[in-house]
């Protein structure tokens, strides 16, 4: 797999990151060298092997269904650039 200009622009758009042309050139180079390196893994035959997503041998910790009043509405809204009567206010999302 090779990263080209279209791919890098798509990744940037999906991540909401603005890239200058000069920067994209650099990222294309960097990402391609990372991919080339990872590419070596293809030498191993993984046919019929499930992907491993976690190497931990512990089990998923669970909690009981008890609701706690966090009462943190003020804290939650503290970082909001704009708010109104307990709501976050964001630029209109047009659909």
């Amino acid at each position: 797999m090779k990263i080209d200009k279209d791919t890098i622009n798509k990744i940037a758009r999906l991540s909401r990151i603005k890239l200058e042309d000069k920067e994209s050139e650099d990222y294309i180079k960097d990402l391609n060298s990372i991919l080339d390196w990872v590419e070596q893994l293809n030498e191993v035959n993984t046919h019929n092997v499930e992907p491993l997503s976690n190497i931990s041998s512990s089990v998923l910790p669970k909690r009981n269904d008890i609701s706690k009043d966090s009462n943190s509405s003020e804290e939650i809204l503290k970082n909001a650039p704009d708010k109104l009567e307990g709501f976050f206010a964001v630029p209109k999302v047009v659909e």
Partner: peptide, 30 residues
């Protein structure tokens, strides 16, 4: 562990996990 009650005042049942504050980790409700 935030409550699920319907119709409460806005953003009153939001924990740091629900607000996706950095470093918060999800723990599943059995």
């Amino acid at each position: 562990s935030s409550s699920t009650t319907f119709g409460s005042s806005p953003n009153s049942q939001v924990s740091l996990v629900d607000a996706a504050m950095p470093g918060m980790l999800p723990v599943i409700n059995e």
